[in-house]
Nucleic acid binder design. Structure first.
Lengths: 344, 344
DNA sequence: CACGTTCTCTGAAACATTTCAAAGTCCGAC
DNA sequence: GTCGGACTTTGAAATGTTTCAGAGAACGTG
């Protein structure tokens, strides 16, 4: 039967003794077809093992059933958590989610975007390599719903979802100050990254508003934000003369913090007594570290979920207005800043 | 112009003053069209901002340009590394990769597979919740190229790629024995998981072949293989009477090992002196732990890459034969089993 | 100049759906 | 009986590509 071909609507129609249109109705508007024929068609479908061809559906209906997320760095669990939030929202809207990974390379990003355009996805969420890249404007010019996640673009040409990084920097350093630290390091980079710049700015603001000297907030720049960069920052920290050496470090993300933690413990330091550490993002592995890491929590899944909702609004609501959503970060204090005796 | 519609081949043809077929040729067989008209068509394309409609292409050509990976657990970085390997192979073959996450739930898995079938993806790679699930047979019956990753199915109805888990268990425990440990715990579960069973089996084999008593290889079953399960296993370990308490633990994956490490250090144990720990998988975070984790390395990206090659072979080579690929795991010794004084 | 080749280009068919106007059918009410 | 309305079903058009047989043009050869 059917000589091997996978069955089409036509085959189902023939088997059930109805017309093409009726089979389509059974799938798309079951309420208009009588119970008797509906059942007959459904039986024919399962008997033939019919599976609707999504390409044909999409071609004719003109609307795709998928969203896409182009993530920045697959090795950072943070982005997977964001993706998970998107996926949940997509699921609620009965859509599939295409996940791509640019690995921080602009060329890969462009390639992915081009493919997604060809697929005519309903909307694109992206944590871009460079939020100012012209190929992003290209997308909005084409009318593809677009939401920038965990970054912000120049004003209002598209939606974005992010966390208040300045505030994040403030609460991290405020916490360290409260713990009595008088010399604090800020570790992160490159500072051309908007994130890094703003977290540093927040740190500096609160530091000076607490009446501390700018000299006691030491900026240790890194090339990137990986565990390895954290380790090497730790070495640089250890190399400072004792009276200049900070007693606490605020890292611009958790990977840096984990690297710093590892290097410090390996070097025989006690955390938090010799060195307190605060990370940023609050990925799962922050809490799972040998000394559980204090971190500035981003609502990772919420970020994704909100972004997905924005992109869906843009895709379906003709009166959509672009919005810049900003979430509030939250300090999660753990053992890496609060010495055991002082915890519950 | 074009009153807002996104331009089609027809529009390009009109703009360039050629026929539909010629435009198609420019895209698919540029060598058959003369340089002059080719250039003319290309200019028309960029002027109009033409983007090929993949649905239409796929519908007519009958062949999709995407692969899919249904991963088991998005919170375990191991699977993302596998995905990365697949992605690289897909890229080489000029295909896109669809990544789905079943989150260890059979219902989600089925939903994803159903969608993928509708998309007519070229092939499916999957780390299934249950390798024996009937809906997998359904796929092969339909003729969809299928490769099982990091699991093995009953004999030869489809390809699979995995690591020799028995050997993995052997080398882990052999290493611990070499370090002089006389009582070792195996932590993992549930043992209905093929992986866990085989790693345990390997551990037992080598243990007895070394002339040790089975009573000194203690199996601590866990409900799942998360960091939290690792912590609670650590508590149970601590609860054992001193003379029964193992001096080393072999964990069935790195997440367990990280949890165990955290709990142990928190409880004041020295690692490896009081408790040595071996993990499995060798995810990035294993090396990044405060006490870098000894682990049985799986060639994660290679696994993915090989799986992708198999699925492509099945998709394109009519004489494809199903194969069960087995990689060899490798012990990576780090500080969690080798005490500092003894390292280089 | 007729002829075969080679190189380009064309036009129509096909792919598997959805959509929608129109045609049927049924039923109760007048 | 006939009419009107409600409920079902049908058939054809349309979606944007690719493919392929064949039409034309250009050109060298005999």
């Amino acid at each position: 039967m059917l000589n091997g071909r996978t069955p089409s609507v036509k085959d189902v129609a023939a088997a059930a003794g109805v017309s093409l249109g009726t089979v389509s109705n059974v799938m798309n508007r079951p309420e208009v077809v009588s119970a008797r024929t509906r059942e007959r068609v459904e039986r024919a479908m399962t008997e033939l093992g019919f599976v609707r061809n999504e390409s044909a559906r999409q071609l004719r209906a003109g609307t795709s059933r998928t969203l896409a997320y182009v993530m920045l760095d697959g090795t950072n669990p943070f982005f997977h958590d964001v993706a998970q939030g998107i996926e949940m929202a997509a699921e609620d809207a009965d859509l599939s989610l295409f996940i791509c990974n640019s690995n921080s390379r602009s060329s890969r990003e462009e390639l992915h975007l081009d493919r997604l355009l060809q697929q005519r996805v309903q909307g694109i969420l992206i944590t871009p390599v460079d939020p100012a890249a012209p190929h992003l404007d290209e997308l909005t010019r084409r009318g593809v719903p677009l939401v920038v996640v965990d970054r912000v673009r120049g004003v209002d040409n598209c939606c974005s979802v992010a966390v208040d990084d300045i505030l994040g920097g403030r609460i991290a350093v405020e916490h360290l100050a409260e713990q009595g630290h008088e010399r604090v390091a800020f570790i992160g980079g490159p500072d051309s990254l908007g994130q890094v710049g703003e977290r540093l700015q927040g740190a500096r603001e609160i530091w000076s508003s607490l009446g501390r000297s700018p000299d006691d907030l030491i900026y240790l720049p890194t090339d990137a934000m990986t565990v390895a960069d954290g380790r090497s920052a730790g070495e640089r920290l250890a190399g400072l003369p004792a009276r200049r050496r900070p007693t606490a470090a605020f890292c611009a993300n958790d990977l840096l913090a984990l690297g710093l933690l590892q290097q410090s413990i390996g070097a025989g330091l006690r955390v938090p007594d010799d060195l307190a550490i605060v990370g940023f993002d609050d990925i799962e592995f922050a809490a799972a570290a040998a000394v559980p890491l204090t971190s500035v929590r981003q609502p990772r899944q919420e970020l994704g979920r909100a972004a997905a909702q924005l992109v869906l609004d843009e895709a379906t609501n003709p009166e959509h207005k672009h919005r810049q959503l900003q979430f509030t970060p939250e300090l999660v204090a753990r053992a890496s800043t609060v010495s055991r005796s002082r915890t519950v």
